[in-house]
Each structure stands twice: as structure tokens, then as C-alpha cells.
């Protein structure tokens, strides 16, 4: 089974558009949206939810006022300023370290498991789809990413799928690290802008850190041809496979506005180009 993740470093370069296009072309696969913080792929795939699960992660402290003797030990030792002067817990600030729980001399502090989000197994026109929604102001999205990737792998095994396509999150933090773990290849979608290239380089460094093979795709390449040339040269120097480049095309905006993968909406030329990009990507997996 092969696993491909589509990432970018910078947000808004076109990860989800590319993932949804690949999802509509590729055969026999499971699709996963690992951007659990601001998930969008479901908007393109129109999923029918088959299974709905609660995601629990981490703990938040709570103080039983009837047992509390106001010794203030917890308040003095909490490094996250999560205990207020009135001896209540600021649940956003609390990191669940359990220091206060271990410290309280009268056992007035309990730890409650957080409901940090939800995740879904869905059916789409393009195949099984695993996705999630992290609760607002929650942390630890790396664990949720690992969890839904595991579900996707189980589904793929059960249904004899030989490919998992992963829509990745932006950035280089814990969600991205969890997305990259043990995949076969990462496709980095970039754009010819100073910030696009800057961020792509950081995520490439991260992928190299975890010895993940990488490929690159330049989206909206005609916005800055000189910069595109720069990126091409960079790929050559770094031995990164450039799977293709795509022009800025209002059909792509239309696809998003109409919530349909590009392949259902775009002009023939763009379709052929994306088909070709997919084949190059797949052959290099």
C-alpha cells in the first residue's frame, strides 16, 4: 500500500484543490483530510457520513470547591497560569500536565479527559473518505491526525485499496509531523511567491529530517515567471522531482465555488494537464 501526502508549508497554495483532483482521477484508494484544524476537502467531495466518532485527548484539571482548603499550592506552582485567583481552572490555558493533581494535599483536584473533536468515516463518489474536525481552541491535533491516518490504513486493508491520498495541513508543526510519519512520498504544492518558496523550503527541510521522499508542483506559475524559474532551478539543485506546473486559471476558482473537483468542471486543456501531473506523481511514488 502506498501513501501520498499533499502539503505546502504556506496555506492557500492549492493543496485541497489538487487533492480533490487526484481523488477524482486515482483508482482504488482511500482519501484522508489531515488538515483537522481547518478541514476543507469535505466541501469538494460531498461525503455521506457513515460513522461519527468522538475524539478524546489530553486532560483538563478541575477543582472541587467543597474539598479545597485554599492552600494555594496549585496556584503557586502552575506554570501555565491556568489557575485563577478564585481557584477555578482556565480550561484554555490548562495544558493537562497534572502537576496540580499530583500536588493537591486534600485530593480536591481531578483530571477530566477532554473531548477535543470528532472524526468521521464517509463514503464519496470517489471512494472511502476519513476526515475530522478538531474542537475550537483545542490542542494536540497530531494525535487526531495519527488516529484518522490509522483508520484510513485499516479501511484500505479491509477493502483492498492500494493507495491512500492525504490532504495535509499547512505549517511545519505537530500536525504536519504526524502527517508525514511513514508515508511513501510528499507532494509539495507551492506558488511562485517569495513566501510560497520560503515556506516550501522549510517544509522540505522537515521532510528531509524524517527522510521522506519529496516531489514538487508549482501552482499559479504564470503569476511570476522569474520566480517559477527560480523554483525550477532549486528543484534541480536539490534533486527534487518537479511533477508539473499549473497556470492561474479561473476554472479552478469556479471549481471551488461550485464545490466540485476540477476534473468535473475545468476546460479540457487544464484537465489533461492535471491528468498528466497525476500520472507523473503516481509513477514516482
Amino acid at each position: 500500500m502506498k501513501q501520498l501526502a499533499i502539503i505546502s508549508g504556506k496555506g492557500g497554495t492549492g493543496k485541497t484543490v489538487i487533492t480533490s483532483a487526484f481523488a477524482s482521477i486515482a483508482d482504488n484508494k482511500v482519501i484522508v483530510d489531515c488538515d483537522v484544524d481547518a478541514a476543507n476537502l469535505h466541501l469538494m467531495l460531498n461525503p455521506k457520513i457513515l460513522e461519527h466518532n468522538i475524539f478524546k485527548s489530553g486532560f483538563t484539571a478541575s477543582i472541587d470547591r467543597s474539598k479545597c482548603t485554599r492552600c494555594l499550592k496549585c496556584l503557586k506552582n502552575c506554570r501555565f497560569n491556568a489557575i485563577t485567583k478564585n481557584l477555578t481552572i482556565d480550561s484554555i490555558a490548562c495544558e493537562g500536565c497534572a502537576f496540580c493533581y499530583n500536588l493537591c494535599p486534600v485530593g480536591a483536584i481531578t483530571l477530566e479527559e477532554n473531548i477535543a473533536g470528532e472524526w468521521f468515516i464517509s463514503e464519496t463518489k470517489y471512494g472511502p473518505f476519513v476526515h475530522a474536525k478538531l474542537g475550537i481552541a483545542e490542542e494536540n491535533s497530531g494525535k487526531l491526525v495519527s488516529l484518522i491516518r490509522k483508520q484510513a490504513q485499516t479501511l484500505a486493508k479491509e477493502q483492498n485499496k492500494n493507495l491512500i491520498i492525504i490532504d495535509g495541513p499547512p505549517g511545519i508543526g505537530c500536525q504536519v509531523i504526524a502527517t508525514l510519519a511513514n508515508i511513501d512520498s510528499a507532494l509539495i504544492v507551492t506558488e511562485p511567491t517569495v513566501s510560497g518558496l520560503h515556506d516550501a523550503k522549510r517544509v522540505i527541510e522537515l521532510a528531509k529530517h524524517f527522510t521522506i521522499p519529496i516531489m514538487m508542483l508549482i501552482n499559479k506559475y504564470d503569476l511570476n515567471l522569474a520566480m517559477t524559474k527560480n523554483i525550477e532551478q532549486y528543484c534541480e539543485q536539490q534533486n527534487i522531482i518537479l511533477v508539473g506546473k499549473i497556470k492561474f486559471d479561473t476554472d479552478i476558482v469556479n471549481a471551488v465555488t461550485n464545490k466540485k473537483p476540477i476534473m468535473n468542471i475545468a476546460n479540457i486543456k487544464l484537465k489533461e494537464q492535471i491528468q498528466k501531473i497525476w500520472h507523473t506523481t503516481y509513477n514516482n511514488l
Binding site: D37, I92, A137, E139
Partner: peptide, 10 residues
């Protein structure tokens, strides 16, 4: 601010 709705954004 960084994108998103989780801890770094907040």
C-alpha cells in the same frame, strides 16, 4: 497570527 483555530492561533 498563524492560520487555524487551535492553540498557536489563540
Amino acid at each position: 497570527a498563524p492560520p487555524g483555530t487551535t492553540c498557536p492561533t489563540i
